[in-house]
Structure formats: structure tokens, C-alpha cells
Design a protein around this nucleic acid. Structure first.
Lengths: 224, 224
DNA sequence: CAAAACTAATAGTAAGACTATCAATTTTGA
DNA sequence: TCAAAATTGATAGTCTTACTATTAGTTTTG
């Protein structure tokens, strides 16, 4: 991402946090080291107490920013999808050919993540691993419907919808654009997970990327 | 499923449990009501203490069958995939045409689950909902690699592989059979979840089923 | 029918997920 | 610039979860 975006802020639904972590130094440290610590321990073993120790602050101070670790995860993953949304918008804005545009979109949404200099306190590589390993835990709960109504997943839904529109622009007769879009988004996380832990269940690995798999799949499906 | 299978037992890796729950009345009650209770409360809110109260037994007695609730989930989902594996084997054994065989396989693996009379103490409909809502939590952990080595996921991997073989039998030139198989299995659970909670992200619903979507996708992909 | 296995009940520990209180520090706006 | 407001850190405390240990009563079985 370029310098134009250096002052950009990904905006996130205010009901996800108690106090905006972008508004203070402590808040940014919570986010920065929260990402690193969840990535190290896994979300299940992560606690606010451990994060407090890591940043030499106090558990109770973290609770003033986020109600609980579940909301913290929703905050972090929302940030991630908001970040992807910007990348997608910038990378496809000048492309007119629908096929080329869609391929570019899939590439951006499914590729291996690299560090983005525009956001100092966020390690996008670690955050991407968190999304791969933990994102589904944020919605596989008994509270999904309530939280969905509260708008906790708007960014992801908007992103999935953009992809769906691009699919429809390539082939408006294709009957399942929404399902294909969600399959690409969730399926890509899954293929990344499989290549790290269940190699027999995927063709992705050193020589083949999830991007190649999904671009091939989509092209063949829509251009036939 | 027919009467031939009435005495069938789905066999599950012995290291997943401490004492075989099929070997006693209490064990069967743990499984039977464990499925119902997890379905009611969600896995996160489920505890052995609550299950003990439900079956009028004791927490400590349940701990003699399963080390912890994580292993209990692995047991239940392994049972589910073993059950699917039998259904798949029986339904495809006499089909010779590879395309027809594959379509039949996808149908079985992605369709809405109905009660199976062959296994009295197991409510397959509730178990299917558990698999949709909780299966990914069983492998999205820091311990996956160890547990995978212990064979906790063999049944699922074997099933995914069978599907992969059927895909390859239809089109041996298709470059991503393993990824397509895992996409169908995990993607189907995901589409079922979306139709219940995020309707804008899927085309599946009252008129369209995940089976139709995946059969259409696979046919178009392999027969072009 | 006695030994072995199993189950239920109780108690106890350590950690997690918070809430409340208070004092010290920092920020801020009149 | 100084007093009020906001923020942070430290401590303590509650309730729940996830277990482990012990014991006593019940059932099974060779």
C-alpha cells in the first residue's frame, strides 16, 4: 500500500469496543501486542491478564477498552477485513475488464499476506494467521444472530458482496454468485490452514497457491 | 440406512476416549445427552457438570469416559464422519459411471441430515448441527499437529480422500482434486451455516440446497 | 460369593473471566 | 495555570470452569 494511505484509519463499528484503541498509546499497545500474543498462544490460551503482563499494564486497564476477549477478536478481524477491503478497492478501481478485475480481486483476497508499512502498530502477517486460525470462532457462537444484528460482521459481509458483484459482472447467468464469493473467502482461509496442518487434504503448498486454485476454479466455472 | 446395519458400530480411535462409551449404559447416555446438550447450549457453554446434572449422574463419572470436553467433541465428530463414510460406501458401491458416482457422493456429503434409525441413542440431526457449528473448533487449536499425529482426524481425512479419488476418476487431468474435495466438505458445512445466519452471503435457502450448488460447481469444473 | 470394577458424592485446587474500589498520574479546558 | 475530569495501575474479591483425589456404596463377574 502506498504513502497516500499513511494517515488512513480503518473504521470499525463503535459497539465493538468500549474505548477506541486508536485514541491512545495504551490502546495501540493493546492492539499491537494483542495480535502478537494471540498469534503465539492461540486465541483459546490468550487472556487479558497475560496481555497485561506482556505490555506492562494491567488487566483492568484492558477491560476498559474491550468488554472481553471475544469482542477483541471481532475488533481485530474486522480491522483485517477492512484492510483487505481497501486493498481490493485500490487494486481494482482502474480495471475495466470484468474478468481481469475478478481475477485481481481473488488474487488480493486469497494471497499470502505481506507486511504493510502504512499501519505501524499492526503486524499484518501475524494478523492474517489469526484470521486463518481463529476467524470462524468469532461467528460460530450462540450469540451470532444478535451480534450480526448489532453490525459486528458488516465489513466482512460488504466485502463478500463486492466479490459477489464482480462475479455477477463476469457472468450474470451464473446462478450462485453469493455462495461462490463466500466459498472463495472462507475456502481460502481453509486452504491456507490445510497446507500448514493437513497437507494430504490440499493441493496447495510450495508450488501451488490457494490463489491459483481459486482463480482456476472461478474462471472455469464462469467462462463455460 | 437399512436393517443390515442395525448391529453396526462406528469404530473410533481408542486414544480419543478413556473408556469406550459404547461399552456401558452410562457411556451411551453420556453420548446421547451430550449431543442434545451441546446442540442446545453450544459447545462453548457446555460443561461436564451440566451434562452430569442432565443425566442425573456425576461430573466425575463422565471424566472416566473422556479426558475433557475437547476430546468429547472429537469423539462425536469422528462418529459423525464415520457414519457419513458408511453412507457414502453403501450408496456408491454399485454405481459404475464415475460422474454419476461423484454426484451421488456429493449429494450424500452435503445434504440435509435425516434421522437414522440404525443408531438408537444418537440423534443424527442434532449431531449434524453440532458438526456445522463446532467442527472447526476441534482442529483450530495449537495442538492440531500433535492430535493429527495421534490419529484424531483419520476418519475425516479418509473421507476427504475417497471424495478426491472420485473426482480424479471423473477427470484425471483436473489439477486440484484434493483441494476440491476439502472445499466441498468444509464448504458445505459453511453454506449450511450461512443459510441459517448470514442469508446475504449465500444463494442456498428454501429453494436451493448446498448440494445443488456443489454438484453444479463440480460438474462444470470437471466436464469442460 | 468374594474380588474387582464401576459409579456417585463430596471436597478441593488452580486458573479464567470478570467487577469494584481506590490512589496516583495525566490531560484538559476555563 | 490550576482545578476538575479522565485515565491508568494496583489490589482484592466473586463466580465459574476444569479439573483431581478420596471414599463409600453398588454392580458385575469368574
Amino acid at each position: 500500500m502506498n504513502d497516500l494511505l499513511r494517515n488512513l484509519k480503518i473504521s470499525i463499528n463503535e459497539s465493538i469496543y468500549l474505548k477506541d484503541p486508536e485514541s491512545s498509546d495504551l490502546g495501540k499497545r493493546i492492539v499491537e501486542h494483542g495480535i502478537l500474543l494471540i498469534n503465539e498462544l492461540g486465541f483459546d490460551n490468550f487472556t487479558f491478564k497475560k496481555l497485561g503482563e506482556r505490555i506492562e499494564s494491567n488487566e483492568s486497564s484492558i477491560y476498559r477498552y474491550f468488554e472481553n476477549k471475544h469482542k477483541f477478536l471481532i475488533y481485530l478481524t474486522s480491522w483485517y477485513w477492512g484492510w483487505k477491503e481497501y486493498q481490493l478497492a485500490f487494486a481494482t478501481i482502474n480495471i475495466n475488464d470484468p474478468k481481469h478485475k475478478l481475477n485481481q480481486a481473488i488474487e488480493i483476497l486469497t494471497r499470502e499476506v505481506e507486511e504493510d508499512q502504512s499501519f505501524n502498530h499492526i503486524n499484518e502477517v501475524a494478523l492474517n494467521k489469526i484470521v486463518i486460525n481463529e476467524y470462524s470462532k468469532s461467528y460460530l457462537t450462540k450469540e451470532v444472530d444478535d451480534e450480526n444484528k448489532e453490525g459486528y460482521f458488516v465489513i466482512y459481509k460488504r466485502l463478500s458482496n463486492r466479490l459477489k458483484e464482480m462475479i455477477a459482472d463476469v457472468n450474470e447467468g451464473y446462478p450462485y454468485p453469493a455462495s461462490l464469493a463466500s466459498t472463495i473467502l472462507a475456502g481460502s482461509l481453509h486452504q491456507h490452514f490445510l497446507k500448514d496442518h493437513f497437507t494430504s487434504l490440499t493441493d496447495c503448498g510450495a508450488e501451488t497457491s490457494p490463489s491459483q486454485y481459486f482463480i482456476h476454479l472461478t474462471s472455469n466455472l464462469l467462462n463455460s
